[in-house]
Nucleic acid binder design. Structure first.
Lengths: 226, 226
DNA sequence: AGACGCATAATTGGATCCAATCAACAATTG
DNA sequence: CAATTGTTGATTGGATCCAATTATGCGTCT
């Protein structure tokens, strides 16, 4: 059983509406693994923990359903979406299709600021002791390299996939340590991007995703305990 | 001003919940252009037209926001999402990245049924007089070719992009007639897929999307009247 | 005359209440 | 004794009501 009160206590700044607040907190909790897959989300319990009525809860759940973070069944309620080898593989296939395109489009327009930010994030990842925050840093690193791509819809879509990836990264970090981050690839990508070497950067990114997918794919076969 | 009652009158079978019914009707109306971009969606007016309370309306709107079909501002309400040359270009970039991957993965596993369905849909498109329904047929055609790809998340994502594309296709059909469908490309794709010729099929698909994007891109420059 | 401020109306966000649906368990029957 | 059916409790879906926020229009002041 999960104590939802802990979640709301650890929340950041409250947004304008209660719905957004609920969504923000639940989303973060699902992504960093505090809410395990399959956990039922009872509206009444959540309402009490957040000290609001059931209505903002319902609206937040509806939106998270559309983001595939939870699964909804009419008159049955919501549960945290399951993770699976299949789902993880899907995410990698999609990232492999989208991110090289974004990177290639982005590199010609990358600014010094973008590259600095990417390098800073690599350093931040080296120093970050909390696994729960590594996912966000990794996400921001990748996105910073795609910042010049234009095509906001493309970037939104990639961010969604990176968010989905976060859930898996969390598990891998907990079990196998942080080798999964593959920081050498990150450095090589920034270096190639800084030189404007599109082909090289795209190739490294492709290998990076390929390697990450391979390392990750073994996870569900034996070690998936909890 | 739009008469929402007409929309609800033209609706199909009612799903289990009122929210789903509202969402289904509004979604279809936005996609086929009956609800123009920028149209404000007042909850009270919708509630009256659908003969339900404002609550199912709100839940439906929330979900459509997550699908980017409407735009939401706190305390201001919802409007039908705008369309733009930029948004259309984004959609094509994303489709160009995703669909060739899906097609290549799918072809080895396509069944006779899948191919028959694709061919039937080409014929249906030739015979369909209603522009509003052409989008759905085109969508189903593309998806039928990707049916063997596995990776359900990838297919869902592609379907989302095809849905987004529907809104633009509707406008092009109304203004320039149905040349935009490029049925020769469709036939060539099925033919190559049936032969198991992945390279050829992927190449035709890439050109198909390229040509469609080119034809479409001129749209917003001069002819956008309404 | 134009701009600012205040009051009022319209609209959405949230709370509370009721109805419909589903799950679990007990009683009954073959 | 197993299967089925009725009944009760829990949970979600929907309706109504109230509060908070925003837009609009008028009046006043500069």
């Amino acid at each position: 059983m999960v104590d939802f009160s802990d979640l709301v206590a650890s929340a950041g700044r409250r947004p304008r509406t209660a719905s957004q607040f609920v969504e923000q907190v639940l989303k973060a909790a699902i992504l960093d693994g505090r809410l395990a897959p399959g956990t039922p989300l009872r509206q009444e319990a959540l309402a009490e923990a957040f000290d609001v009525s059931r209505m903002p809860i319902r609206e937040a759940l509806r939106q998270m359903e559309a983001e595939a973070l939870i699964e909804f069944a009419p008159h049955k309620g919501a549960v945290v979406a399951e993770i699976s080898a299949q789902d993880q593989a899907d995410t990698y296939v999609i990232r492999q299709a989208l991110e090289p395109v974004a990177l290639a489009l982005s590199i010609p327009h990358l600014t010094r600021d973008d590259l600095d930010r990417a390098e800073d994030l690599i350093g931040d990842m080296d120093r970050e002791p909390d696994h729960g925050r590594l996912g966000e840093l990794n996400r921001r690193f990748h996105i910073s390299l795609y910042a010049g791509a234009g095509h906001p819809k493309l970037l939104d879509l990639i961010e969604q996939q990176l968010i989905a990836h976060d859930r898996y990264l969390r598990f891998h970090l907990a079990i196998r340590g942080r080798e999964e981050i593959l920081q050498e690839d990150h450095r090589a990508m920034v270096e190639a991007a800084a030189r404007g070497d599109i082909d090289r950067a795209v190739k490294v990114l492709g290998q990076h995703l390929e390697r990450a997918a391979t390392v990750s794919s073994g996870f569900f076969d034996g070690e998936a305990g909890a």
